[in-house]
């Protein structure tokens, strides 16, 4: 019954599109307002024993659950906590693979955020590597993390694994 069926179908496109309306809460709004000014700002709850600085802050301390009331300005330097090399092209993504997506902990903060790495040899990127933010020109700044184009390697000693996430704002001196 299929003498004129043409090519046999072996696959069909079944996309799923999820439409969101994202409203930033107070903590994220404060963070984005600072990003728009070219600054990375974390938050902490000064009274908490953990002393953790979160970036981007979600508004409460993960250790005690209470509001992070204090803002802490962070530097442009960070440490690679983990990374992956992306080889698969993603539709509508202008970045050509292979490229690096990394979890980066900014100096002065205790948790990582995800961003791109570039100006680097992909095969030599490693955990503990020191990097710095490369910002877009000021006139292009918006309420967005891609105000930072990417992070590029710094010529500084690696941070030992046990010290990643504990580097002070003053930076890493290379002493274990």
């Amino acid at each position: 019954m299929s003498e004129d069926a043409g090519e046999h179908i072996t696959a069909i496109e079944t996309p799923v599109y999820l439409k969101y309306n994202f409203t930033a809460g107070q903590a994220t709004t404060r963070f984005l307002q600072q990003v728009r000014q070219g600054k990375l700002v974390g938050q902490r709850r000064p009274e908490c024993d953990c002393g953790n600085v979160y970036v981007p802050a979600r508004g409460s301390c993960a250790a005690c659950g209470l509001p992070t009331t204090e803002e802490v300005e962070l530097g442009d330097k960070a440490t690679v906590q983990s990374f992956t090399i992306v080889w698969i092209p993603i539709p509508n993504n202008p970045i050509q693979p292979p490229y690096i997506v990394a979890n980066l902990v900014p100096d002065g903060a205790n948790i990582s955020f995800i961003h791109l790495m570039s100006e680097c040899d992909n095969d030599s990127v490693h955990i503990g590597q020191r990097v710095e933010a490369v910002w877009k020109p000021e006139e292009e700044w918006d309420y967005a993390m891609d105000n930072i184009r990417y992070f590029r390697p710094l010529d500084e000693p690696d941070v030992p694994i046990e010290m990643i996430g504990k580097v002070p704002l003053a930076g890493w001196e290379g002493e274990a």
């Binding site: 496109e13 599109y17 439409k19 930033a24 539709p91």
Partner: peptide
Amino acid sequence: LSQQFELGYTY
């Protein structure tokens, strides 16, 4: 701050 965005899984 509020923004619309779409997450697409192009299966």
